[in-house]
Design a protein around this nucleic acid. Structure first.
Lengths: 358, 358
DNA sequence: CTGAAAGCGCTTACAG
DNA sequence: CTGAAAGCGCTTACAG
């Protein structure tokens, strides 16, 4: 008891604290209400008298209170308002565009997004996912969307913690997680058929060793026309620095030995490099060879000739992904797994022409 | 009291909870110690008996405890381990490379980074800075590094909350915040002198309306040689979608009226577009006109001819920035403002040649 | 060497 | 309509 008294006296002398944010308590004191009431005002609770509300608003003004601490709020509500976005490499324009779309939508919805790169490496990916868990993210977006092996285990764990997990983009086959995808198999199928309609008969595909849906669509189209496919696979296609050198080495024999007159690249990233290398080889584009890529990155409109490409509806997908996260968090989705497939858009440009056009 | 009893009985039947992370308390219970002890083990406190430590480690294993909640820890320690990175636009390769460098260094140092885009818009920038504040970030990195007007006010506020604020890259003149910069004025000066040494006398500069250090270095070099400068300014250079069209409109008269034989672009982003447009105009590069950019983005090595550029040491700068943040947080810096200037590297490539070379 | 207790800034039944 | 109180998961003097 006496100790209590002493303390109270000491408090009378306390200085105004210039450091740190104003808290809900600062506001409450100034407004002459309890912090619970301030909290209610902040959370738009209807059961606050309007004159009290007014007083609180004034106090917020006076104290320079900005917004409730997300940390503290999160600790109570179990919602941080933080999203984790795991991409291969933000320097790859495909992911940069995706990250931008996610950030834009997230901003509108009041989320903040942590972006991490894993270079497609499982070990790093797992680490980053656990890090997302330690931050108690509300949701995780993984691009590309395939979650297998240890990454799947990690994803399961953070899902068990209450976070929504969404695969974004490329995701072959079944997934135990929600997926917002894009039908690139269909798109590749169409692209290949377009090339066939232009008279091309020897059409090559250059991509990573792992067989992607883009590759499958390409193969399907050729199969349906009774033609055989020509694959050139390159390890670590999205990351390697020496890609151009590798292409210089591989492309000439690939093209000449098979009489190839059109190449579909797995991405614009690689297609742009193919474009460069075939021109170094003295081939004219599209007169001697047509080139198409995927992703429709900004640079693709900048080359001479501009690169034909397949545009992925990033914005649309980002929006769908975040809506799905919100619904999951609100428990508004009953189905165990959402799988929403969007359509890609073909952008035919100068790098594609009919066979032997001149 | 009776109610209490009922409750207690109900609790006896409680199920093991499958949802949510294992906490420090779960571990404590399994290990038969207090949560304080678990906390000490987690924080490498030396004052824990090694056999206790062992028990705790085993309990961590058993419970599947991953790591302490950053939220809860942050609420106590006032350190979130979260960094905010504010860039103009992650789709611009310059910022993508920077963001990657920051993420890599941050990961090594145990930070996580929130990336936000503001398109160089003050209003959005201010919002994002306050959002960083609401997340209680430990540090904020702003690129480009100039913090003025309302953005400066917002930055001051979050600095007052205890966060370290660092400007990254371009930052003309004095700053009240720490800056990790790069001497692009000097670099531009050298680039321009290089062009002069190749015989060029009418050298143009294309950039944003706001005068940057790159532009100043260019102007200085010409002044020192007694030559006059030729500026073409374009609003919103980093963001606008119609940049190519604008250049198509402006470049011909700019080049012809002034007899320009070399152009320095404010960025590779714009220089690549200039490259494209001058070729559309029928000019040969570098025979008729030389082009140089800034930033050395990956695409610059991919064009024909490859674009000469100035490389910014992103990695080095990101590392310096994060070290500075750590030191600020640890109160190990006494000077009121750090200003560390790194050197850029000239990468001369095929897009540059001597005047009238053929 | 270890534990009980206070407190970081919030939210939300529970009383009134 | 409003407040007192408990509690989210941690850390850290303070005792012992």
């Amino acid at each position: 008891m006496p100790q209590e008294k002493v303390r109270s006296e000491a408090w009378d002398h306390k200085q105004p604290e210039p450091l740190g944010r104003a808290t809900i308590h600062t506001v409450a004191e100034v407004a002459g209400v309890s912090s619970a009431t301030v909290s209610r005002v902040l959370n738009q609770s209807p059961l606050v008298a309007s004159h009290t509300r007014e007083r609180v608003y004034r106090a917020i003004e006076e104290t320079g209170f900005r917004s409730p601490s997300r940390l503290a709020r999160a600790l109570r509500t179990n919602r941080t308002g933080i999203l984790g976005l795991l991409v291969e490499n933000i320097m790859n324009p495909y992911y940069a565009v995706l990250a931008r779309a996610v950030d834009d939508v997230a901003k509108e919805e009041g989320f903040v997004v942590i972006v991490s790169n894993d270079d497609g490496c499982e070990k790093v990916g797992v680490e980053r996912l656990y890090t997302f868990g330690s931050v108690n993210v509300d949701g995780v977006l993984v691009a590309p969307g395939a979650l297998e092996g240890k990454r799947r285990d990690a994803a399961r764990e953070i899902k068990a913690q209450g976070a929504a997990v969404i695969g974004l983009g490329d995701c072959l086959g079944e997934s135990e997680f929600d997926v917002i995808g894009v039908d690139l198999q269909e798109a590749a199928y169409k692209v290949c058929n377009h090339l066939l309609s232009l008279g091309h008969r020897h059409i090559g595909f250059v991509g990573p060793i792992i067989k992607t849906d883009r590759c499958l669509g390409y193969e399907q189209a050729l199969r349906d026309s009774g033609l055989s496919s020509h694959l050139l696979t390159m390890p670590y296609v999205g990351t390697r620095e020496d890609l151009v050198e590798a292409l210089r080495e591989e492309l000439p024999s690939f093209i000449e030995a098979r009489g190839i007159t059109a190449i579909i690249g797995h991405s614009d990233f690689i297609a742009l490099k193919i474009l460069r290398v075939v021109r170094e080889m003295g081939l004219r584009v599209p007169e001697d060879i047509s080139i198409v890529g995927f992703d429709n990155i900004p640079e693709s409109t900048m080359t001479v000739p501009p690169l034909a490409s397949v545009a992925i509806p990033h914005r649309e997908m980002a929006a769908a992904a975040i809506v799905t996260i919100q619904k999951r968090l609100a428990n508004e989705i009953s189905s165990p797994v959402v799988c929403q497939i969007h359509q890609a858009k073909l952008c035919m440009r100068g790098s594609v022409g009919s066979k032997n056009c001149s």
